[in-house]
Amino acid sequence: MIEVKNVSKWYSSFRVLDNCSLAIAKGEVVVICGPSGSGKSTLIKCINGLEPFTQGSIAVDGISVGDRSTNLPKLRARIGMVFQNFELFPHMTARQNIMLAQQKVLNRDNAAADRKAQELLDRIGLADHAGKYPAQLSGGQQQRVAIARALAMDPIAMLFDEPTSALDPEMITEVLDVMVRLALDGMTMAVVTHEMGFARKVAHRVVFMDQGTIVEDAPKEEFFGTPRSERAQQFLSKILQH
């Protein structure tokens, strides 16, 4: 479904991504981890064309992302994305946030978009908060609305860019719960996160990145059992210490 082939990205002499290849099949959940500045967020933003890349190719459902003739808005509408800082639109209520792209991109009528929004808000347990503005919601609630906003487009895959790093600890679970349910429902997911509990629970594969390269790409059991690379071992011991 998602095919990243030999992708590199550099600014003058600084390499952000170095020859990265990654394939994600339909229904697969892949967790991408690594130290900060390792290029994992950049890689995931390359997948829907938010970050341009210098070399290589990326295809989503057979459509080339880097191709100039590709209709990027159309492609992006089919891939959901969730951001570290939620990025709900502050001037719209939770419901309006979920309805905007349905109406403006998919041309759904008001009633259909509203129905969909209500249904998703129900699913994430925020039906009572539909009329609230982002600033009136907690971080965890905002991130759940952001997930609902992405799901409203009936995406074929979901990208998560550190969805819980900006959250207070007590709110992380409520967001992870939504993501776990999504994974168990069979959604294709690429998740940049340090939440190893989440990875253990639902990931099929874990990808470890360092300094712009993919150092390790292994099935979950293998990765947590005996990571091959020393760098991945060090990283794991650091984040699992506490």
């Binding site: 933003k45 990027l72 992006r76 509408a77 089919r78 994305m81 709900l88 639109f89 792209a101």
Partner: peptide, 8 residues
């Protein structure tokens, strides 16, 4: 980014 990611 969020707007673009939704296909706007």
């Amino acid at each position: 980014h969020a707007g673009l990611a939704m296909g706007l």
